[in-house]
Design a protein around this nucleic acid. Structure first.
Lengths: 224, 224
DNA sequence: TTTCGCCTCGGTCTGTAGACTGAGGGAAAT
DNA sequence: ATTTCCCTCAGTCTACAGACCGAGGCGAAA
């Protein structure tokens, strides 16, 4: 990825909040090194537009991507985009600092993870880092990253449950049914049932209600 | 609240995300009827600045307030501000549509509740409504409001669970099945089902797993 | 006495849960 | 190269869950 002297880096903004897109555009208008070539209000929108040849035939080099979007998750979109366009530099923008999400985002190939509370200066600094493929993260974010990694490695040993089983367990602990869980995890209801059966066997319990209680007692459930 | 002809309405933006503030300011620069006189990055910031006399001695007439902020909640800030400055017109801005939050916001005195996904046009329309003290809400929001009110009125009676229903609920929260519960309480499985159905209706939940979680969240369950 | 709420029980019916069996693919370890 | 583990999915079957219907007894309140 060579910088053509004098040519601004082409930026795509993906966020479902128009006012955030507007704010970002305003940020970047201040800096001649970047040019916003397009906006998308969701992951699907972004993906489809790129598949159709980009914005006025242009492909972005940098993508600023919101994490929480209604149609396609930012992490998921990151994975999808990078599988097609591996040279994209994707920066995740988010309001919340969730340890797991940070890990997922970086795993998905995002170069940086930036909180929406940052100033224009800090964002542009992160974007400059992105060009050089150098992650620029605040100490908050890097702490969350290491915490998330620790949690994950720790939870790998938890009760001999697999990653997937734990995901299913947490959703059960939220009161979701199998159909719901399948939709959430993008797997069939059959597979969900398999995981539930395995959970019941491993935890030596009789039904999903007991699983939900179990998770809450262990403090694994959200807002428990 | 009289409109001085030709004088723009003074707006205060309260949001912890600088890029949202920037976006909003850019929105409002397009409209001469509004002038952003100040910004705050949180509830406390806003409150303290107003207490010190406002922004360059000016007090806002309209406040655009984010709901989720780290230091002081948008609803809380709304309540606090209105108790001091009852003429403020506060519009809540948020990313998420939570039934309860909508109700709380309106109760706190916010004139409107607007999603961050709206366009500049729609926001300005809501602000014009705010001037006239007329709530302008999308159908999404008004539905959430009515849903939230229903839920609340229902949950006020949730203490209207009968003795028997509470007993059944606690047993469900222990992970017992209907047969078990029937044996425990010396009643038929049919009667247990009746109580469970009534519980589901009163608590507005879908199945016994959600009932168990509900009881645990309320702290009603044993060893919860 | 009538009314009302609660508890009790029955039947029917549909949908989901969960057990059980079998099977293919991928990734990592040996 | 083989084993092993995990994730995935299918089909079948039984049991339970829960909705919806109706109904009787019982005690407290109007």
């Amino acid at each position: 990825m060579m910088e053509p002297a004098g040519t601004p880096w082409k930026v795509l903004i993906v966020d479902d909040h128009e006012m955030v897109r507007m704010g970002l555009r305003t940020y970047l208008m201040l800096d001649a090194r970047f040019e916003v070539i397009g906006e998308a209000n969701g992951g699907k929108d972004a993906f489809e537009t790129l598949a159709r040849g980009g914005y006025q035939g242009q492909l972005p080099q940098i993508v600023l991507m919101d994490l929480m979007m209604p149609d396609m998750d930012g992490v998921e979109t990151t994975r999808a985009l990078l599988s097609q366009y591996p040279d994209l530099r994707i920066i995740i923008l988010t309001s919340f600092l969730e340890d797991e999400k940070v890990v997922e985002a970086i795993e998905a190939g995002a170069v940086s993870y930036v909180l929406k509370t940052v100033s224009a200066d800090e964002l542009i600094y992160a974007m400059q880092g992105a060009i050089k493929n150098m992650p620029v993260m605040s100490s908050d974010v890097s702490q969350a990253l290491t915490r998330g990694l620790r949690k994950r490695s720790a939870s790998h040993e938890v009760e001999g449950l697999t990653e997937r089983e734990r995901e299913v367990l947490l959703l059960i602990a939220e009161g979701r049914n199998n159909k719901d869980i399948g939709d959430e995890l993008h797997i069939s209801i059959k597979t969900v049932k398999t995981h539930v059966s395995n959970l019941l066997m491993k935890c030596e319990l009789d039904d999903r209600t007991q699983l939900a209680i179990y998770a809450h007692r262990k403090g694994w459930a959200k807002q428990g």
